[in-house]
């Protein structure tokens, strides 16, 4: 007897596929719409934006707005150009991420690998600081920074923010998953605490560090309240904080420069997006995989 194997192409499955993708595309479009709106408005003259708001028209002001956004300042000193603010944001983002990672790793290292009394207790204390974000302690923090003379400095911008329960927590979990035998092998190989950290732990944590870096960079980049309080000199403004300044200048005869502000907003979105795109695979690896 001949057995026949029939292959059906199942239309239901295809429909389901189309439906799935439809939902995804819709979601994506919904998320990206504001960005497109921003983009559209940067191409129009400010007067038009003022009168009509977002529209479907594409104007010719893109390069002009870009020039204004990046190279012109609106303050008294003329220091807060887009380029300058981009630079400041970059320093904040990088410093913030690097600081949190270094500090978090060291704290986790101490908690996991050293036989301290109250290590667990110390960890939970660190952990509970999650309940005390900067906003809660902003006045005392400000006062301390002021007393230390760190207003309008990068140190003042970064250091008060870098103590991180989140990073400590993730690194702690990660370190605990590293097999005990590896540590013992290193001990027998004569690696002291410092060498073990540098030679073994840091390289092993690469993917974790990368994942943390992305999260923390974006987090630092988007800081708003703290930079607003700590920086009054225009050459210390960050992008996120500086944009506000522009749309606010309603007084006098000048129009709010929507085109320019929107352009800056777009510029402000770009670095985090690029970082996420380029480090995406690391990110996923760091949080899900452990190649030990």
């Amino acid at each position: 007897m001949k057995s026949e194997i029939k292959t059906y192409t199942r239309p239901q499955i295809k429909l389901l596929l189309i439906f799935d993708h439809g939902v995804l595309i819709l979601g994506a479009a919904f998320m990206i719409l504001p960005v497109l709106m921003l983009l559209q408005m940067t191409t129009m003259p400010d007067l038009f934006n003022m009168k009509t708001g977002p529209s479907l028209a594409i104007g010719d002001q893109l390069d002009d707005n870009f020039r204004k956004a990046m190279f012109e300042a609106d303050g008294f000193s003329g220091a807060n150009t887009g380029v300058r603010m981009l630079w400041n944001s970059m320093i904040l983002g990088l410093g913030f991420a690097a600081g949190k990672i270094v500090l978090g790793m060291m704290a986790a290292y101490a908690i996991v690998y050293f036989r301290m009394r109250f290590a667990t207790f110390a960890f939970w204390i660190i952990f509970t600081t999650l309940l005390l974000p900067l906003e809660v302690r902003i006045l005392p923090s400000y006062e301390i920074v002021q007393h230390l003379g760190m207003l309008n400095t990068y140190q003042g911008l970064i250091i008060p923010l870098i103590a991180s329960a989140t990073a400590t927590f993730f690194f702690r979990q990660y370190f605990r998953s590293i097999p005990e035998e590896l540590i013992e092998a290193a001990r027998i190989d004569g690696a002291g605490p410092f060498k073990f950290f540098v030679d073994i732990l840091v390289p092993l944590s690469q993917t974790m560090i990368a994942a943390m870096f992305i999260i923390m960079f974006v987090y630092g980049w988007n800081q708003y309240l703290w930079p607003t309080m700590i920086t009054t000199d225009e050459d210390m403004f960050t992008l996120v904080r500086g944009i506000k300044q522009i749309t606010q200048s309603l007084e006098g005869t000048s129009l709010p420069e929507y085109g320019r502000a929107n352009m800056l907003a777009l510029v402000a979105i770009l670095p985090p997006v690029l970082i996420v795109i380029f480090f995406q695979s690391w990110f996923v690896k760091g949080l899900t995989e452990s190649d030990k």
């Binding site: 013992e184 073994i200 190649d291």
Partner: peptide
């Protein structure tokens, strides 16, 4: 010492 799981440094 030689360990059961070899304990080689993966990196």
């Amino acid at each position: 010492m030689v360990f059961q799981n070899y304990a080689l440094y993966p990196h």
